[in-house]
Design a protein around this nucleic acid. Structure first.
Lengths: 202, 202
DNA sequence: GCGTTATGAATGAAGG
DNA sequence: CCTTCATTCATAACGC
């Protein structure tokens, strides 16, 4: 409950988003980049938490396996010769890809406010990140460069005031109050999706 | 916890989702309803998993607390427009597809020679094309980007039989970031961020 | 309806 | 910085 201000800003953005929808930006909902980032982070957090819980548990009670497959995309969708597949292309990784861990750190540093990482800072970051995977200072440099540039390219999209208000298929907003803080049962269909969801997603 | 297999599938799903997030983050912050739903579900999944893990742990080793701050507000997450479990599959286009009209225009502009549509030009084009269907500047931008790249990749192969069969120049750069499972230490600020994070999302 | 292909989009890196 | 390229992922469109 600390960040009232933040919340306010968020609201603003949501309003803006609404406007975009009205203007027919797309057929669905619109999120600002910032919201997106937050979500992304949120998920990453959960991933880490789950992971750590498992580890913690294992270390405490060194008996029960509990090796849940919860383990999320550690390393991103980049799975160098994953255990699952045959050792086909051995290396062929031409460009650096941050591991999810690294990404999280980078992200957090990014919005930490230090918008302009100096040479010195970059070095520090690189050093820190090298703990979590292969990385070079150049990588870090590029990452920040790109990150900044791309998040900046966001303004000119608002509504584009095209005269033609192409109507949006009004999404029937059915406000389901978030009272579902219930137990697990209600999520079973999510956790273990029957063909339907799975197919859609995979 | 019998469902090892199921959990495996989950992982896959998570990857997918992450991808989607990435997608959204770049362009524009536009998310389809469907993507949104997936995201929301994913978060719920994590929430539940975390919860379960904690409970499980507690039941196994009935000593260590292990309930520190992890407790996520199940259900109360990001849901600006409600619609939580309303699987409304309205047309939802996930990816922009040019209408034939737009495509013609784009093509003609493309061979018109202006190989490098400036930012300004892109905007013009987008505006023009929006007369013929939903489109954003980003779409236009991407289209040209891809068009250029792909036509360049086709030509040299058919016309010139230069020794270069098919890429694989092999930059000896073995950049495989290896499996970093992520140390927890560096995440403390993320894991237990004082109610902050959760707040911001709503 | 399932595998394939075409293509929209994301992103690390280079160039200016 | 800002723009552009190259590579890769994911999916709409298409053929079977």
């Amino acid at each position: 409950m600390v960040k009232k201000k933040k919340e306010k800003e968020k609201s603003k953005e949501i309003e803006e988003m609404d406007r975009e929808i009205q203007n027919g930006a797309y057929s669905g909902r619109v999120m600002t980049e910032e919201q997106m980032e937050i979500l992304r982070k949120q998920i990453a957090v959960y991933a880490v938490i789950c992971d750590q819980l498992v580890l913690l548990h294992n270390s405490l009670s060194s008996y029960h396996p509990l090796s849940s497959g919860v383990r999320p995309m550690v390393g991103g969708y980049f799975d160098p010769m994953g255990a699952s597949s045959s050792s086909h292309r051995i290396s062929t990784r031409h460009r650096w890809t941050p591991t999810s861990t690294q990404l999280q750190i980078l992200e957090s540093i990014y919005d930490e406010g230090s918008g302009t990482p100096n040479r010195r800072r970059i070095r520090e970051i690189a050093t820190e990140l090298s703990e979590h995977g292969q990385i070079t200072e150049t990588n870090v440099y590029n990452w920040f460069q790109n990150r900044r540039a791309r998040s900046k390219r966001k303004q000119p999209q608002t509504t584009t005031a095209n005269g033609q208000a192409d109507d949006v298929a009004v999404t029937t907003e059915e406000r389901r109050s978030c009272g579902d803080s219930g137990g697990l049962e209600s999520y079973e269909h999510i956790l273990f999706p029957s063909p339907d969801l799975g197919k859609k997603i995979i």
